[in-house]
Each structure stands twice: as C-alpha cells, then as structure tokens.
Design a protein around this nucleic acid. Structure first.
Length: 877
DNA sequence: CGCTATGATTCCGCTTCCTACCA
DNA sequence: CTGGTAGGAAGCGGAATCATAGC
C-alpha cells in the first residue's frame, strides 16, 4: 500500500520524527466530552514510577471507533510507526549519537551535506558563530557556494562592523547603499493613473530622516507612458530586496512611515424586492431591512448542512430574535418559533440571483469586475517607508452567521456589520488620514510603529480582535517568515542537548519535570501543537499540553493510541510505539484519581513549557519544533530519495513524496475527493489504452519484417495488464463508442442543416460511416492473437520505434502520476508548503536537480518567497 | 503565577481561475 | 481552430491557534 511505502522510506533514520501514521478517517466535530475542568492530581512527587500497572485492567482502547486491536488499521500503523529505539532505560545515550549514526548510513553523496549539518551536531560548539565556522570547516564546497551560504544565511553579518544602536537609522543607512549597489533601480516606476497624490506629501515631510528616495523616484518617473505589462515588469524589477539590505533592528520597530487607505466597507444592505418575503406560519412576513438582512443570511444557507444543525439554528434564531425585537415585522406579526419560519422564498431568490449573475455575458461580467477593481485599487497597497507594499485583507468582514469549525458552541451566531466607528486605524503620524468609504468616523487613530497592522476591530462572536495586515508577499511578512525559518534552523544547534535533557527528565522525581519532559517528547517526535487552554465557548479541541485522559490510550506493551480533535477539529489519530519510559509515564499521568476529562499533563502549561524551552535558546517555543521538524524531515527526505538521473517527473514525484511525509507528520489532512476512485480507474484505463496502442505498434513492427521480432527482443514481450479478455472488451467498447459518436454527429449536423434551411443528410451517409467503423474493428478482430497488425502512417522501422518510445514515455509518466495521486489522496500538501517548509530547501533542490521551480511553487508562493530565490544549490536547511 | 489584551501565524473550506480535453 | 466543460489547483476569507507582555 501506498502508506507503507511512505513508512518504509522513513524507517531508516531514527532521528526524524514519527512521521507515518495511518491517519484514520478524518472526522470533524466528533465531540468528545464537554467539560473543561481538570482537577489536578495530588501534589505529591512521583515517589517512584513503579506503580502497579497490571492491577488496573484499564480499558485500553474502549474509546476509539477505530479497529485498534489487530485490525488492518492497527497492523498498518504498527509497521508505520517506528519504535524509537533508544536504549530504553539508559538516559545517557542521547539522541544525538543516534542522529550522527544514522547520518553515516545515508548515501555517499550525503557526506557533503553532512559536513554542512555538522555544525548542528556538537552542542558544545553551538555558541560559535555558525557562518564563520561553516565556511572554514568546509573546504569541500566550492568557493562560490561557501561565499553564498555565508552571506545568505546571515545577511546581517556583513564585514562592516556595525553597532546596533538606533535600529532605524542604522538600517536605513544600510539599506540605501545596498539598494543602490545591488539592485540597478531604474527610477521609472510608472503608475499611470493612480496614487501620485498619495505618494508625495508624507514622503516629503519626512525626507530628512526617512528614506524618501523611493517615493520621490516614483513621482518623478511618472512622465513616460508604458503599457500595463511593461509597467508591471518594471515594478517587479524594482522590488525592494529587503533581504539584501540590512534590516536587522531589534525587531521592535516595524516601520518609519506608513500611509494607507484604511479598510473598505461592504456596501450597505439592499432590501429584497417586495415580492420576496419569508413566510411565517405560512404567511408572508414583511420585515424591516435590519431584520430582513439577518433572515437572508440564514435563507441563503438553507441548502447547506448548517441549516440542519440544531445549535446553528438555535444560535441564529436567538440572535435574530434580538434584532426582531428592535425591528419587528410589519402588521404586528410576532415571530417566536423557529419551526414556523420558512425562508425558502429568500433562498430561491438568492439562487436565482446567482444563476443570473452566472449567465451574464462575459463582457458584462468583465466590466463589473473592472469597476470593482477600480474601486478597490487604492486599498490594495500602502506606502511603508515610502515603498509601495501590498495590503492583505483590506476588506472589512461582512456581516453574516458565524461558521465555526467543528463543534463550536457559537456557530450560527450573528456576526455584526462593522463600520468606521468600530475600527482603530494604525497609520504614520504625518500620513493623511483616509476617509472611510461609508459615512462615519474612525473609532480611533493610532501611530504605533512597533506593530504591523494597519487597522483592527473587535469582533462580536468571541470578542477577539481582527486585523488588517500586509499581504504575504510584503517585506514585513517576508521578514518574519524568514526569521521563523532562521529560528528553526537555530534549533539545530540546540536540539541534541534538549533531547538529551528531556530524555533524562523522563525519569525525574518531580512530577512537573517529568510531565514537561514527556510533553516535549511528543512535541518533538509527533509534532503536536502546544495546546493552549481554551474557553468554554470555543470548540473542544486540544493540543499537547491540553491532552486529556481520554485522548491517549495505553496499548500494552508499548503503544500509545492518540485520538483527539486538534486545531480546526481535525482528528488526530496515531498509534505510536514508544519506549518503555514514555509508556510508563503516561500510565502514571493517567493514574488515579484521574479519569475522563482530566488533563494528562496537569502540571504543564504552554507558558511554562515555552519558558523552559526559551532557557535553551532565545525565542524557542513549541511551534518552532514543528517548523524545525517539518523542514529538517523534508530536507533529509529530499537528499535521500531524489533520483539523481531521473526524469523531471520522477524528481517531482520524489519531491511530492517528501512533501507528503511532512504533511502526514503535521497531520494536514484533506478529505478524499468523491470521485477519486473513478479518477483512478479512468487513469488506469487510459494507461491500458496506451498500452494497447503500443501493442499494435509492436505488432505492426513485426508484421513489417518477422525478423524484427528476434532483433528487438525487448519488444517481444506482451504488455502487462492487458490480456485477451480486456482487449476484446476494449475493442468492443471503442467500436460502440465510435458508432455512437458518428450517429450523434450525424444527428447534430442535421439539426444544424435544418436550422439553416438546408437539406439534411441522408441516413445512408451515417450508415456508410458506421460500416466503415465496423470494417475497421472487424479487421482488428481478425488481427487479435496474430501478433501482427497494420500500422497507420509511415511504416518504417525507425518511425514505428520512435512512436513506441513516445508511448513508453507517456505510459511511464502516467503511472508516476497515478501513484502520486493515490498516495496523496488524503494528504493536503499545500499547508506545509506555505507554512512549514523553508522555501530555500525547495529552491536549492530545484537548482541542484534542474527542475524549474515553477513546477512546485505557484505564483503566489513565488511572490511570497522572493527572499528564498537567491540561494544556490548547495544550501541546506 | 494566572488572566487579559494584543499581535501574529496557521489552516481549512469555499469560490474562482485555469487547463486539458472534447465536440 | 474554437467554444464549452469538468475537474483540479490556486486564491481568498476568515476561523483557529500560538505566543507574549503586562497586570
């Protein structure tokens, strides 16, 4: 099976996290148990771990709906999850040694990498400057590579000794020369129509201290007209390469100057036509716009599963009643019962609207879109330190019914419409304060340059804040993204010691320490999320620290069954072989008086855990482990599994395979698309059809000259997976299809001719065609089993051979695709690509293996990761 | 410490866009 | 060649989580 394959692959290196698991069915919202209280156990220390375990005949797996015993699921998992083989009891054999062990096993070409990753192995050296050491200790790498990796890994550390005093001036001073030197900036940014007035005022006033050249350049270059495309290109070329500039402040100050247009509010509610009314008690009810709008929210969702959801309906109805109280229906109608409401007419109306819009002529659609785009244009970017940067979510979230994921207690609640008076704007001191596109005044305007948001507001569902940030491709986001990966890479230097320590702590006498160590083990090996506490009116989902009694089941002698709902109520199901100490610890942590509903790690919180982690390395938190393990696994898999001389298709498959392992590790699931099965079967059919063609070509070749059969031994063999039976069926089916096609075409042609008032084609025409088809297939029938065939087209040996080769190629790629597809049917690759895999790994791999990166990164990904594009093939995570 | 306020990241589902295929 | 389609992939929206500072 596909899955096993993944596993076997991963099997060899013991150091990587426990990737593979049979991820059971994905089930959302399978409510576990409601309560949130978790009584601490007693405060006692763990006197010793020799708690009698046999005694309590614990129902080891009662909870799970999975066949956790010896069913197929369990079987496959146990193959998959590796036993972390440490010498069990001996803490003094740290993971570190394992790590280097395995490294030596890996293929020879890995040695190069090894020296690279060397700097992460010995902890005692960790404090030394990584970059310097690297190049010194690596005579192997060619000069270019070494230099590059030096400069790219720590752009901040240029030779110029610079004190990091006032970060802003500092970085500015740096940015300037660098920019000039490295990016041949033609100052001709052209933005024909827009923005000129936005650019100037601020930049000018700040020219003294701030970098104003960009803005000035902008306004100056305005003369020349260009085509849109050219303008775009120019803009692209001109992009600010912050990763080449020195942007290293202390990170607290995010910008100098900031101008933007605020948030864009959705248009006010437009009441429905007067003939569209919901029914109450069977009679049309006339609602004021305020309550009609809310009714419409529900009406629009009538055909979704939400409308079947009790909680959703209840929440909606109770919120709607509040609105109705203020804006009651006309004519004294009292709406009190949900069951008497019929929103169908509204639904029909919306459906018709959607259909109408869909059937609109393309030109009209385009015009409408252009209009909308024009209105939004100025919101799409801002000026950050004089540079134009894209804004992400500049639209205020429209009102609606809250669609919580999973078993969210607030699902269906009304999310209010927000206006300017809800919004806090964050903008540069001297910037012009934008005027909202609907009447009203901003709630507040602040000038906080230590944060990256442009606006925020409080949302009424959970009382949390929503923010307008810059787009993913912006410099601010890019920098924090790069920092994230650099932080994860830094962990390489500490991870051995951390592992060693927590392995020791697994036996600590102090319950708190032992729990923490165990939790860290899970976070490290299983890539669990931290698991912050959650409130009562949130969905009951957990992460590591919030795991409860019922979420881990002991399966003697050495397996733990994890089964819980994680973020977004995605089920995490994993059967893991663990070493005895872990098993023992969980047994203790689940020991009496604990029971269902109690926290397993009652002495650990995310805060304490993170604090502990930070003692090893500044900024180290639980989530860094996820990033680290994802990227390091990815890198290792790529190094190990990419075929050196493979085709591009094979390399891509290897890439996807590595990507998939990470996705499985991080539990990024997607539901199997409903027609996956048929799609697979179709592909298989297509392959068989290609093989059939190939067979015909071979036979044609032999027909050409019987001697060729001996000469081309490699072609003598029959195609696999198509047998006589299949051929009969296939030929019959294609014959039928072609006849049907001819028939249909004839009918259609006639329809057309008739419409044009011309004479229709006689039936004999189609009959002739059909008989021709029949003749052909009869001939093929004759050919069956003869090992000979008639080939169309040029009948030379050479020609036939090249055609066979082409078919071989197609069959091969198709097969690869098929395997890829099957293995990935329930794994979402995108999430890890966007969030967890250092893009530089991909880029370096592409350069080494000569694969165009466009095959792996979509346009947005390319926009998001410009900073990663300049690494060379030698770069390693 | 735990709690709250705030800030930032991660993540999935729905919609839209794109593309390979077909008539 | 061309318009029409289906099925995926990409893009977007916004929910969910993580994290930290300050009380």
């Amino acid at each position: 099976m596909a899955k096993n394959q993944i596993l076997t692959d991963s099997d060899s290196d013991d150091d990587t996290p426990l990737v593979a698991r049979s991820n059971g069915t994905r089930s959302r919202a399978a409510k576990a148990n409601g309560n949130g209280k978790r009584p601490h156990t007693s405060d006692e220390e763990l006197s010793d771990e020799d708690v009698p375990l046999a005694k309590r005949a614990k129902p080891t797996n009662g909870a799970s709906a999975k066949p956790s015993s010896s069913g197929s699921a369990a079987a496959s998992t146990s193959t998959t999850s590796r036993l972390l083989k440490e010498e069990d009891s001996s803490d003094d054999e740290p993971l570190a040694s394992q790590a280097s062990d395995t490294r030596h096993i890996v293929s020879p070409e890995k040695i190069k990498d090894e020296s690279d990753s060397d700097d992460d192995v010995p902890l005692y050296q960790a404090s030394a400057n990584g970059a310097g050491k690297k190049s010194a200790a690596k005579p192997k790498a060619n000069g270019k590579a070494a230099a590059a990796s030096d400069s790219d890994s720590k752009p901040a550390k240029t030779k110029v000794p610079r004190k990091r005093v006032k970060k802003e001036e500092d970085s500015d001073a740096d940015a300037k020369p660098l920019k000039k030197a490295r990016t041949p900036r033609k100052k001709v940014k052209v933005e024909e129509d827009d923005d000129s007035d936005d650019d100037k005022p601020l930049a000018k006033s700040l020219a003294a201290k701030a970098d104003s050249k960009a803005a000035k350049g902008d306004s100056k270059g305005k003369g020349k007209a260009k085509t849109k495309k050219e303008a775009e290109e120019a803009e692209e070329e001109e992009m600010f390469k912050w990763w080449e500039a020195n942007m290293l402040g202390d990170g607290t100050q995010k910008w100098q100057t900031l101008e933007h247009s605020g948030v864009l509010f959705p248009p006010p509610y437009v009441p429905l036509p007067s003939d569209v009314k919901m029914l109450y008690n069977g009679k049309p009810a006339t609602l004021p716009p305020e309550s009609e709008e809310v009714a419409g929210f529900f009406g629009a969702m009538l055909e979704t599963t939400h409308a079947q959801d009790q909680t959703f309906c209840n929440n909606f109805f109770s919120d709607w009643l509040k609105i109705l109280k203020k804006y009651p229906p006309a004519g004294g109608v009292k709406i009190t019962e949900f069951g008497k409401c019929d929103f169908r007419p509204m639904y029909e109306h919306f459906a018709a609207e959607i259909a109408r819009r869909k059937s609109m002529p393309a030109a009209e659609k385009k015009a409408l879109k252009a209009e909308k785009d024009a209105a939004e244009e100025k919101y799409t970017f801002c000026l950050l330190d004089g540079r134009k940067e894209k804004v992400g979510n500049f639209r205020a979230e429209p009102p609606g019914l809250f669609r919580g994921r999973g078993d969210h207690p607030r699902r269906g609640a009304l999310k209010f419409r927000i206006g300017p008076e809800d919004i806090i704007l964050n903008i540069g001191k001297e910037a012009k304060i934008p005027v909202p596109n609907i009447p009203g005044e901003w709630k507040k305007v602040v000038h906080d340059n230590t944060v990256t948001w442009l606006a925020n507001w409080k949302e009424n569902i959970n009382g949390s804040f929503k923010y307008v940030f810059l787009a993913a491709g912006s410099s601010l986001k890019g920098q924090s993204d790069m920092n994230k990966f650099e932080k994860a890479r830094e962990l390489k230097k500490h991870v051995d010691k951390i592992r060693k320590d927590y392995n020791a702590d697994l036996k600590s006498k102090l319950s708190a320490d032992r729990q923490r160590a165990t939790a860290m083990y899970f976070i490290d090996r299983l890539a669990l999320r931290a698991g912050n506490e959650k409130g009562d009116d949130e969905a009951d989902t957990v992460g590591c620290c919030s795991l409860r009694y019922e979420h881990i089941t002991l399966q003697p002698p050495d397996e733990l069954v994890f089964d819980f709902l994680g973020k977004d109520s995605i089920r995490y199901y994993n059967v893991v072989k663990v070493e005895p100490q872990i098993f023992k610890n969980i047994r203790i942590f689940k020991g009496p008086p604990k029971e269902t509903g109690d926290a397993i790690f009652d002495r650990v919180t995310t805060t304490t855990l993170n604090k502990h982690l930070a003692s090893y390395m500044k900024g180290l938190t639980a989530k860094v482990f996820r990033t680290y393990n994802a990227s390091i696994t990815f890198q290792e898999q790529l190094d190990k599994c990419t075929p050196k001389d493979g085709t591009v298709a094979e390399k891509l498959a290897a890439y996807n395979q590595a990507n998939r392992m990470v996705a499985i590790l991080c539990n990024h699931q997607k539901s199997v698309s409903k027609n996956h099965g048929t799609a697979m079967e179709n592909m298989a059919q297509k392959i068989r059809a290609l093989k059939y063609q190939r067979m015909k070509l071979r036979h044609g070749l032999f027909a050409l000259d019987p001697k060729l059969k001996k000469k081309r031994k490699n072609l003598a063999e029959d195609e696999s997976d198509i047998d006589d039976e299949w051929i009969v069926k296939y030929e019959d089916e294609t014959r039928a299809k072609e006849i049907e096609k001819a028939q249909k075409k004839w009918e259609k042609d006639n329809e057309k001719l008739e419409a044009e008032g011309k004479d229709t084609l006689d039936e004999s025409v189609v009959e002739a065609k059909i008989s021709k088809i029949n003749d052909e297939y009869d001939r093929l029938k004759e050919e069956r089993g003869t090992g000979q065939a008639e080939v169309k087209g040029k009948k030379t040996e050479e020609n036939i051979l090249t055609n066979i080769a082409k078919l071989d190629e197609r069959i091969h790629t198709m097969k690869i695709q098929m395997v890829d597809r099957e293995e990935g049917k329930e794994v979402a690759l995108g999430t890890s690509k966007i969030n967890y895999l250092d893009p530089r790994i991909t880029q370096a791999w592409c350069k080494t293996h000569n694969v165009p990166i466009e095959k792996l990164f979509s346009k947005t990904l390319m926009v998001k990761f410009p900073w990663a594009m300049e690494v060379d093939g030698e770069w390693k995570f």
